[in-house]
Design a binder for these strands. Structure first.
Lengths: 248, 248
DNA sequence: TGCAATTAATCAGTCGTTTGATTAATTCAA
DNA sequence: TTGAATTAATCAAACGACTGATTAATTGCA
């Protein structure tokens, strides 16, 4: 948890009541959560500008004015959605990290251990981004935010993207015997992530060309195999005893 | 040219005058082209819904009503932008293909020739998508359209994406000795394209993490090196006996 | 003159936001 | 335990601003 960014230092949106430290399931917060989920769904599928506050309120089964009351406005709801996604994705990533047997902060794993962890994590990422129906609205939301630089993106970057990327880079470095913060490693990690994300972004096109009706288990297995193989090749290339020559 | 989709069979947008076969620089078409370029720029940078017709007209230095007159409306301008992009990207891709010494339709190149063509093409794609300032609005426009399935996307897919993907797959198949339309090859090509596209989509994040101020020549060279190495590894993996080039 | 192109002005509709009223829940002196 | 006072939350309704689209009048070239 040492690399996790502090998520408490983001100011509450104007007009929002003080954060309740007590139970959040009290039913009073139901409207708040419902609006966030509706915003997440609509912002992710149609985009921020294309989603009207009326449709959000209708989807959340709430009154239009509740958006202004709880979040100060549409932009405040956007930020609240980002915060919701940030905390949630971090949990998912932590679970994936645990599944991949990420090294603890204290003991350094062997290169083989690190390599196995990277490969397992890559497969988990594919399934988490493409397969898990519950996280899809969040992934789509983040993808939209990535394309539109905004204060919301800053928050997601600092609280999720940057610490996760650093962590994977560290592991990547251990697996290849290189400095995890070297340019080559940072770039290789982005290239791998890009492969996975694009399968989500260009979903409609890929399904069409692959003649798939959706990302079922077989499709995800095929994609995961492709990605993992590519990661493996990238690890080999950066390792001192790799089989192919260095790139120019 | 046998694989090139016919770009003439797309219906003209309602209200648009018949396509001029003669000179398009005649000054009469200046407004039309100016509107398309303004739409391309705004749709690509802010999104379709976030771009108002008034801002488009102002950017194009034209009257608001000219959008309706020339394209039938905002949606018509969107389609016209897509057509403009389709024809333009096809030219660029053809140039890149020529640069990569794409095989002609009649003679089958050797696996080594095909391999070299794929690698050269990959590098050209990186530079065309990330480096060329003139094509950036078009790339951004296509990326936005890809995220929002629409009739416009259908046109771009059929006229550009599908034929180009098939062509690369064919070459990829020749380089690896596999069927270019096999699932493995089609998937590998999408994975490679995804790497490149993500470097554009997540530009702001990548620049931040890489500590770059922009995609200058050094950055693009680094990205191209990463992508080409990944493509090389993918080709090796799909080839029956590894990299040794035996003729089949 | 004839017609394609452009212009200013206006249309009905939707946008995000705000209002004042109303209900539900909580507080606190008596 | 009462009952009035306060607060939190929701509601229908409306606000001004802006949306895309359309009109009728005007321009300018052939």
């Amino acid at each position: 948890m040492t690399t996790m960014a502090n998520m408490e230092d983001h100011p509450a949106p104007p007009g929002a009541p003080a954060e309740r430290a007590g139970p959040a399931e009290s039913g009073v917060e139901a409207t708040r959560l419902s609006l966030i989920e509706a915003g997440l769904k609509l912002f992710g599928s149609k985009g921020f500008e294309a989603s009207s506050t009326r449709e959000i309120a209708r989807t959340a089964d709430a009154n239009i004015a509740s958006i202004g009351y709880h979040f100060g406005g549409k932009e405040g709801l956007r930020l609240a959605c980002a915060q919701h996604v940030a905390s949630h994705i971090w949990k998912i990533a932590s679970a994936a990290a645990a599944l991949a047997r990420f090294p603890q902060d204290d003991n350094s794993p062997s290169p083989d251990q690190a390599r196995a962890a990277v490969l397992t994590f890559a497969g988990a990422m594919v399934r988490g981004i493409l397969g898990d129906e519950r996280t899809l609205p969040m992934i789509d939301f983040v993808i939209r935010e990535i394309a539109n630089p905004s204060p919301t993106l800053d928050m997601v970057y600092r609280s999720v993207i940057d610490p996760m990327h650093r962590r994977v880079c560290g592991l990547w470095g251990l697996a290849t015997g290189r400095d995890g913060e070297s340019e080559a490693v940072r770039l290789a990690v982005f290239a791998a992530i890009g492969q996975i994300m694009y399968f989500r972004i260009a979903r409609e096109i890929i399904l069409r060309r692959m003649d798939w009706s959706g990302y079922d288990e077989a499709a995800i297995a095929a994609i995961a195999g492709e990605v993992v193989a590519c990661v493996e090749a990238s690890l080999d290339r950066l390792s001192p005893g790799g089989r192919t020559g260095e790139a120019s």
